[in-house]
Simulated scan of single mutants.
Amino acid sequence: MEFTEVEIILYGAEQLCPSCVNLPSSKETYEWLEAAISRKFPKQPFKISYVDIYQPPNDPVKAEFAKRVIEEDMFYPVVLIKEKVVGEGNPRLKTIFAEMKKYGYRAK
């Protein structure tokens, strides 16, 4: 299987989502996710970005999805890989790892 470098985008906000009171913040989840993926797939490049849903970047695709997160009351952080939602609220590593394996990532 061929390897394709993926971009993982985590959409979140400073403030916790109302249904996510006892969960880590979006930023903490982003840092935890980055570390966990690096450990699971060492020496396999991936890009991970954080998008604040209330202050999205100038990228029209990311800004549009940030708007969707708010309008559709999604539980954030929302984790996307290649435009596929792989985690909402409390993302599960197992789901994210399974999606990455579809792009040729090999677990250590």
Results as ranks from 00 to 15, higher is better:
1 M>R: 11
2 E>V: 13
2 E>K: 08
2 E>M: 03
2 E>A: 13
2 E>N: 09
4 T>H: 14
4 T>P: 00
6 V>I: 11
7 E>R: 05
10 L>N: 04
10 L>D: 01
11 Y>T: 02
11 Y>A: 02
12 G>I: 09
16 L>Q: 12
17 C>K: 06
18 P>W: 00
18 P>F: 04
21 V>Y: 13
23 L>N: 08
23 L>T: 09
25 S>F: 01
28 E>M: 12
28 E>D: 15
34 E>T: 10
34 E>F: 02
34 E>H: 10
35 A>F: 01
37 I>H: 12
37 I>K: 05
37 I>D: 12
39 R>D: 14
40 K>G: 06
41 F>D: 02
41 F>M: 01
43 K>W: 00
44 Q>T: 06
45 P>L: 13
46 F>T: 11
54 Y>V: 04
57 P>N: 07
58 N>Y: 07
58 N>A: 08
59 D>R: 07
60 P>C: 08
60 P>G: 10
60 P>W: 06
61 V>G: 02
62 K>R: 13
62 K>W: 05
66 A>N: 06
67 K>H: 09
67 K>G: 03
68 R>L: 09
68 R>A: 05
69 V>N: 05
69 V>H: 00
71 E>L: 14
71 E>N: 13
73 D>V: 03
73 D>E: 09
74 M>H: 04
75 F>P: 00
75 F>K: 15
76 Y>R: 01
77 P>F: 06
80 L>C: 05
80 L>K: 04
80 L>I: 13
80 L>Y: 03
81 I>W: 03
81 I>F: 04
81 I>K: 03
82 K>Y: 10
83 E>G: 02
87 G>A: 10
88 E>R: 08
89 G>C: 05
90 N>D: 14
93 L>K: 12
95 T>E: 13
97 F>E: 08
99 E>L: 02
100 M>Y: 08
101 K>R: 12
101 K>Q: 13
102 K>H: 10
102 K>P: 07
103 Y>R: 14
104 G>D: 11
105 Y>D: 07
106 R>V: 15
